[in-house]
């Protein structure tokens, strides 16, 4: 039986125009809304698969504001059993702090009788893209860690993880308990069922405060890259533009004649 903890983050959507707050300290998601990153959708799927296959539980955790309960409920609707909100002023938190806050919960739950044999996270956050929380968490917990993983299973006392390496598909075997950072591509996240959504509404969410003094992220400010004025040259409309396209391909040296 493996109890799995999957850590997620509320991030701005990636489908529209990104705006910034006036002080350049945060993304203003008013036009794009909030969501989960693609890597974490896959981590949730893997968490429920491992919990289901081993007869264990899947607990979802986030470090953030109370608004992130929306994302915890989404994960519950996808099959997670329990949820934990670690309330924190995330603007003041860097990857060191997020890892420390998660480690606190892992240790507290272990003391209360739930030991997570597998902790899953997204490979990197879709907004801050730090690539560090899984590794820093693993060191804080003195557990082995591997990142960039597409699929994983728990077989006895081993976490068997598969990812794509520079020389081909790679397999890692880590002793339980372990930390695994998941990259999109190995599993297809499921869609929430109506039953799942109903059930998710009824789950009591554990809320704790992060008891750490943050070291911060080192952020000075955010800026938007300068928008280049459009210089697009329209070659034509519809199929009639095909000769102009092939002229261009020839000009660029893409066609051998």
């Amino acid at each position: 039986m493996t109890d799995v903890l999957v850590c997620i983050k509320r991030v701005p959507g990636a489908s529209g125009e990104v705006l910034l707050s006036d002080d350049g300290q945060r993304v203003d998601a008013r036009h794009v809304g909030w969501t989960l990153s693609a890597h974490e959708e896959c981590a949730i799927e893997l968490a429920t698969q491992v919990a289901g296959a081993t007869g264990g539980t899947a607990t979802v955790l986030t470090v953030g504001s109370a608004d992130a309960i929306e994302q915890l409920r989404d994960a519950l609707a996808l099959g997670c059993d329990r949820a934990v909100l670690v309330e924190a002023e995330t603007d003041r938190f860097g990857p060191v702090d997020v890892a420390a806050a998660i480690a606190e919960v892992v240790r507290a739950h272990e003391a209360a009788g739930t030991s997570y044999g597998l902790v899953l996270l997204g490979n990197d956050a879709a907004d801050t893209g730090d690539f560090q929380v899984p590794v820093r968490l693993a060191y804080a917990l003195a557990r082995p860690v591997v990142t960039g993983i597409a699929t994983c299973t728990v077989e006895g006392d081993l976490v068997v993880a598969h990812g794509d390496g520079p020389d081909g598909p790679e397999t890692f075997e880590l002793p339980v308990p372990a930390v695994v950072a998941v990259m999109e591509g190995g599993v297809a996240p499921r869609y929430p069922s109506v039953m799942g959504r109903m059930k998710a509404k009824k789950v009591a969410i554990e809320q704790v405060a992060a008891e750490i003094e943050p070291v911060g992220s080192g952020r000075v400010r955010l800026t938007l890259p300068p928008e280049q004025p459009s210089q697009v040259q329209v070659l034509g409309q519809g199929a009639d533009a095909a000769p102009a396209v092939v002229d261009l391909l020839e000009e660029l040296g893409m066609v051998s004649r």
């Binding site: 990636a14 993304v27 879709a126 400010r221 955010l222 938007l224 890259p225």
Partner: peptide
Amino acid sequence: IVTRQVVGGAVLEQMQLG
């Protein structure tokens, strides 16, 4: 002090490595 890509490159972050 460095500039790095965040939000998939849609935003740049100036960050201090002290």
